[in-house]
Each structure stands twice: as C-alpha cells, then as structure tokens.
C-alpha cells in the first residue's frame, strides 16, 4: 500500500513536471551557468574599485553626457526625450532590465539602442544615431543607469521564441578559424585562465560599458564583435539581426544578475 502511494506520487510528479517542460520548452532546454556570476567577479580588484565608485568610474562620464542629451531637443518639433518621457528616473526604471523586446506594431526585435533610434526617427523626426556613436552610447548608458541594481529579467514567449532560439543556436555553434563557440569558453571553461585573463561566464549585465582594452565606452554589440574577432570569425554588423538574437539569448542567460550599466570591464 505504502509503495503504491509512492508510485502514484511519483507518477503525478513526473506528469506535472513534463507539463511544465512543455509550457516553457525553449528556455528550459537551453543551459546557463548556475549560479550566474557577474563579469565583475572575474576582474582585478582595481577594475572592481573603478566600477564601485561612481566618481572614479570612467563609464559614468558617458551616463552624465546622456543626462544632458536627455534634455536636448532634436528634430523639427523641437522635442527632447524629456518632452515625452519626463523624469528618466521614473519612466526609464527597469527598461534596460527587460530589453531586448519585440516592438508590438512592427514585430521587430529592439534593444535599447534600437528603441532610442526608433523614438528619434518616428517621434522626434530626427536622424538616427550611428550605432557606436557617442550620443547613442551616452543615452543608452543613461537609460541603463535607471535600472542599475534591478534584476535582469527578459521574458521569452511565443512572440520572441524564434529569435531566442536563433541566438541560442549562434551561441553554441563553432565558428571562425579557431572553431570555437561562445559556449566553449563561457559555459565549459569559465573561471579558468587564458594567459592572465580569467574567463567569465559572458554575461551582459554591465553593457554598454567602459572597457579598459578599448580605453573607451562601447556597446554590447562592439563587445560581441570583439569575441567574433577573437575566434577569427567574420564580424557581424553592430545592430544586425544576428547580434540582436544573440543579445536576446544572452539577456535570458544573465537572468537574475543585477544590471550594472554603465559598468567597467577588462
């Protein structure tokens, strides 16, 4: 009798977990490091100190620039970001934590940079910023700052599932002359050394970020392109669908980590 109860219980548990699997199949099948560890844990104490103190963080110079730009008017209507969105501290809170997102009317997958540019072209009727331009980086940094400390939380659903899976595929496909996939370093070998660098889990919660190697502030797509270069693969264009798909997958992979934008990295 006792064993019968156990069997029934086991069967019930099995069926219910199977049902959960079906409901959340895409993300469930994808692997991600557990627990997720932010890139800041893999850098030297000096770099950590730069990020921890807002004044000494070079990245904050771009966020400050973005704060000025938020109030600057553009286009024939003389509108600024502030004209519609008012106080960024309220209107932009949490935005960077849940992007990239499918734009409802167009069905396009937009990250924060693309969203800002869409606002510029469609609402302000102004010219779009170039992808890695200082202005777009500064505004993205300022918008990101409003979500700092909040948990990365992108939703994967029917609408973005195909894009998510495409990103996931790219993450685990071997590419380039070195024949390496993202997963080979950032899932299989994080915590180990490449020369003096400790391989991180490859999370995106600090971007756009100030990178010491660049001596400059740069976008996530620039960082991803750098990895493509590192494995001697063809570089996708910043802002391309390919990199947006990867960004969506990486945002899901970074789930639970706090937003550190604008961060400082090696």
């Amino acid at each position: 009798m006792v064993s019968f109860i156990f069997i029934m219980f086991g069967l019930g548990w099995g069926v219910s977990s199977f049902l959960i699997c079906i409901a959340d199949e895409g993300p469930k099948r994808a692997k991600r490091p557990q627990p997720p560890r932010s890139g800041i844990e893999f850098v030297s104490p000096e770099i950590r100190a730069f990020q921890e103190d807002d004044f000494s963080s070079p990245a904050m110079l771009w966020a400050t620039r973005g704060e000025h730009l938020w109030q600057e008017t553009a286009g024939p209507r003389g509108e600024s970001c502030q004209s519609c969105h008012h106080d960024a501290a309220q209107s932009m809170k949490g935005v960077s934590a849940r992007y990239p997102k499918i734009d409802e009317p167009s069905g396009a997958l937009l990250n924060v940079e693309a969203r800002i540019n869409r606002c510029r072209t469609e609402k302000q009727k102004a010219a779009a910023f170039a992808y890695d331009s200082e202005s777009l980086l500064a505004l993205t940094a300022y918008v990101g700052l409003q979500s700092r400390g909040m948990e990365m939380k992108v939703t994967i659903d029917e609408k973005n599932k195909a894009r998510f899976e495409s990103g996931q595929r790219l993450f685990s496909t071997r590419i380039g002359q070195m024949n390496l996939a993202c997963t080979n370093c950032h899932d299989d070998n994080y915590g180990r050394k490449l020369l003096n660098d400790t391989i991180s889990q490859g999370h995106i919660n600090a971007y756009p970020a100030y990178r010491i190697e660049w001596q400059d502030f740069g976008s996530l797509h620039r960082r991803l392109r750098a990895c493509f270069y590192g494995v001697r693969a063809q570089l996708p264009t910043a802002g391309s669908d390919e990199l947006l798909d990867l960004e969506l997958f990486l945002a899901w992979r970074s789930q639970g980590l706090p937003v550190e934008t604008p961060g400082v990295r090696r």
Partner: peptide, 9 residues
C-alpha cells in the same frame, strides 16, 4: 579634490 575629464588622451 577629485577631477574626472572625458578625453581620449
């Protein structure tokens, strides 16, 4: 006194 200047140097 702390100073930070945005400049590529």
């Amino acid at each position: 006194v702390r100073v930070a200047i945005q400049h590529p140097m």
